[in-house]
Nucleic acid binder design. Sequence first.
DNA 1: CTTGACCTTTACGCTACGTCAAGGTATATA
DNA 2: TATATACCTTGACGTAGCGTAAAGGTCAAG
Lengths: 208, 208
Amino acid sequence: MEYTVQKLGNLAGVSTRTLRYYDEIDLLKPARKRSSGYRIYGQQQILFFRELGLELEQIKNIVNDRSFNDTCALEEHREKLLAKRMQLDLLITNVEKTISTKEGESTMADKEKFRGFKQKLLEDNEQQYDSEIRSEYSNDLVDQSNAKMLNMSEGQYQKFIGLEQQVLDRLADAIKTGDPSSDAAQNTADLHRQWLGFTWTSYKQKST
Amino acid sequence: MEYTVQKLGNLAGVSTRTLRYYDEIDLLKPARKRSSGYRIYGQQQILFFRELGLELEQIKNIVNDRSFNDTCALEEHREKLLAKRMQLDLLITNVEKTISTKEGESTMADKEKFRGFKQKLLEDNEQQYDSEIRSEYSNDLVDQSNAKMLNMSEGQYQKFIGLEQQVLDRLADAIKTGDPSSDAAQNTADLHRQWLGFTWTSYKQKST
DNA sequence: CTTGACCTTTACGCTACGTCAAGGTATATA
DNA sequence: TATATACCTTGACGTAGCGTAAAGGTCAAG
C-alpha cells in the first residue's frame, strides 16, 4: 500500500499540511520520496500518539529516545489533562452561572426568593460539614459544587429534592438484602449518581 | 481605586502582557493614561468575560454590540465546552489505558487474572443493568466507566471493594435516622462520592 | 540622590498548523 | 498526443494569546 499525503491524510483524519509539517519537524517522515518529490507513506505509529493529544515535542522524545521514561511522561501528561479538565469545569459552571442570571432577568423577584432558599440550604450544609468536607476535598470542588447548586433552575432543584428522598428509600431496600452487588444496591448507586450529578460537577448528559 | 497594570493583573490573575495586549486589540482599554504613559484601570467587566474562556473576538462582539444574542452565544459556548470535556475525558482514559498496559508488562500473568476478574464483574453488571443504565446515560459514559474500571490498578480495586462495603455500612446508619440531611447521610454521600469516583469519570482529587 | 521596583514601547518567539501562490506531475479522456 | 484536471511540491505569510527579553523612562522609600 503506497499512501500519498492526501490518502494518508484522509485515512488518519489530518490535513496534508499537517503531514508536511510533521515531515518538516522530523516527527513523521514518509517511508520514501519518489523522484518527483512525492512523499510516500507506509507506517503510522505516530498518528496513534497524536491521538493521545501529547505535545509534539514529547512525542518526538518518546519515539526517538527509548530511554525516555515513557510512563513518567504519560503520568505527567495525565496530570495536565486532569488539570485542564478542572479548568474546563470551572469555565462551564461560570458560563452556566452567567446563563442563569441572564435568563432570570425577567422574573428576578421569584428567582431571588428561590435563590435565598437554596442559599440557606447551602449555608446549613457548610456550617455542619464544612470542615470535614473541605478537608477531604479541595476547596475548589466544594465551591464548584455550591456554585452548581445555586445555578440550578427551579425544575432541576425540585428533581434534586425528589431524588434525595428516593435515594433514602432505595437505601432501605439495599440494607435489607445486605448485598452490595444486589439489584437494590445497584439501583441505589444509580440514583445516588444522579443525585450527586446535581451538586457535584460531573456529567449530566443523558441520551435524548 | 487606581489600578496599574500589575495590580489589576494580580487581582484578575492575568499577566501585565495580557493587559497590554488587550489594550492593543481594543478589548480592554484602561480608564485613562497618565502623562507618564502609565495605564490606569478602573473597571474590569471584560475580565469577567475572559474568565468564561470565550474567544476574544466573540467577547468583543458581546461588549460592543448589544443586539448580539448573548445568551445564545453563551449556550453555544457551553456546548463547545462540554464537547471539549468529553474529548478530554476520552484522552484521559486513553492515557490511563496506555499507562496501565505499560506498567503491567512485568507481571502480565497476574494482571491478566486480575483483569479477568474485573471483566467478569463488568459483564455481570452489564447484563443486568445494561439497558436501564444505557438508556438513562449516554453510551459514551457507560463505556468510559467500564474502561476506567478495567484500567484500575489492583490497589485501587481493593480500595474500591472496601468502599463498597463501607457505603453499605453507612447506609444502615442513614436509614436509622431517616433524615437525608443527617450527619450519617452526609457521610454516606461523601463515601458514595468516593465510590463513584472509582467507576465514574469525575474528580478524585483530595486536598493534600 | 540613589536604589529598586515599577512602568513604557518594540519586537521576535512559540504551537500547530491554515491558506494562498507559483509551479511541477500523474492520469484519464478526447 | 494533447489537454484537462486532480494531484503533488516548496516557500512564505498569518493566526491566537500571549511569553520573554531589550532598552529605556518613572515613582516611592530611605
